[in-house]
Nucleic acid binder design. Sequence first.
DNA 1: CGCGCCGTTGAGCCCGTTCAAAAAGTGTGG
DNA 2: CCACACTTTTTGAACGGGCTCAACGGCGCG
Lengths: 254, 254
Amino acid sequence: MNGHSGFEAATIHCPECPVRRLALFQPLDPGEVSIAEAFRTEFRHLKPGNAIFRQGEDIKEVYTLHEGWAYLYQNLVDGGRQILRVILPGDFFGFQVDMGDGVRIYSAQALTAVALCVFPAANILKMVREHVELGIRLIWMTAHDEAVAYEQVVSLGRRTARERVAYLLLDLFHRLRLRQRNPEGIRTVDLPLTQELIADICGLTQIHVNRTLKSLRNDNLLELKGGKLYVPDVDLLACEAKHSHSVFTKRPML
Amino acid sequence: MNGHSGFEAATIHCPECPVRRLALFQPLDPGEVSIAEAFRTEFRHLKPGNAIFRQGEDIKEVYTLHEGWAYLYQNLVDGGRQILRVILPGDFFGFQVDMGDGVRIYSAQALTAVALCVFPAANILKMVREHVELGIRLIWMTAHDEAVAYEQVVSLGRRTARERVAYLLLDLFHRLRLRQRNPEGIRTVDLPLTQELIADICGLTQIHVNRTLKSLRNDNLLELKGGKLYVPDVDLLACEAKHSHSVFTKRPML
DNA sequence: CGCGCCGTTGAGCCCGTTCAAAAAGTGTGG
DNA sequence: CCACACTTTTTGAACGGGCTCAACGGCGCG
């Protein structure tokens, strides 16, 4: 599912990689991109639900998601969990402070079937020291992730269930559209999230997510069924999501 | 208030700066620290409540807080606000993606009287290109801020009011203790937060923060009065805060 | 003294939760 | 193609944590 089409690891080369424009190595000139490939050690496939890494493990690798959906999350003592970030193709993830001796402070899991570009964590600092521009790129991406995290803090701290769900789906809608050939005309995107996952992102229960979606559907703001998200009017949904400023505008990448 | 003691800008030099061990330039060897000083353009004083920068403004500077308290926040359309991060002496802040042409996505404000080390934003990339280790340090700090933001996401998404307030005060207690000579023995710290500010951090109302503090006080977990926070048993409070893993342990800095 | 800010307390309401159950997919093997 | 198990979605009813509205007390300061 999700259009996975059986790549051979050996046939994927970074310079012609279709998701590269979104990824860590995007700003490098063609000669430098091969640097990335030299550092990449593996091209890995995982099934839906498989763990990529777990809270508490040593940090051995960092990743670029090549295909499919994944997410970062934390488990809680009471059995619940909070999803920290949804990862789409081209997104870089798994980078963390204490890369040397630290452990994972969150887990990562494949949501659909995924293909991953794997880089050894130990090489990252070496890479940065040898190629300063790559270091700057890494600073940029980490700062972007921080900004996105702050946006989620605002959502969870101050927005209602309707606003949170609207904001999440709008965000995903934008990010997915940018990965398409002709972003403008698109009103429907594939969205393999279950209501339970939406709940774990928005800090709600699955049941209340269901009622919230129903309410949004009744107001013709969106339609979510069978893994497809339909948004008739993006501006209307944006209004509902109440994002005072916007991470979408001037978004540096993704 | 808050022990502000009238420094002269000219008399503060980075190599002997008392908060340097916490700051951006901590890992540099003595010779390199003077680099930082060469880039610093100003040592600025602000009064309580003064804005450091505002949402929507161009990004012209980044900062290290030298003395006092400050915080980052976002205003919402409905008049509410969400505090994103509390800044203590030695903390570096104001760095953001799109440093060149972007605008602030959040505001920063002095909570007490503050003293700031100001660096021109335009020089940051130049600095990184000339001193790779400083770039690595910047990656590290940004990744740390991201981790702290994720922790707040978990708090706001999945924890009760009691847990959120307990977690916040415990976090501040830890951070403040680390800035003291003899961290172990300390049970009381200065904490100039009003209940309204705590509410804006924890995503609650001031009234409910009041009731929550009362409840925590009744259980002998903490005492907060007259700008002083007293924690009789850190472990007991940590248990209440329910942080499954800990940003405190293995904390790389701060 | 009077004003403004901050903290405290009470009463009632509402958004989102919990508990419970049924309906509607979805995939698997016979 | 159907039977079966399992996951996901839907709906109902009742509870409760945190909010709103309102009022009062304490404290610092001009």
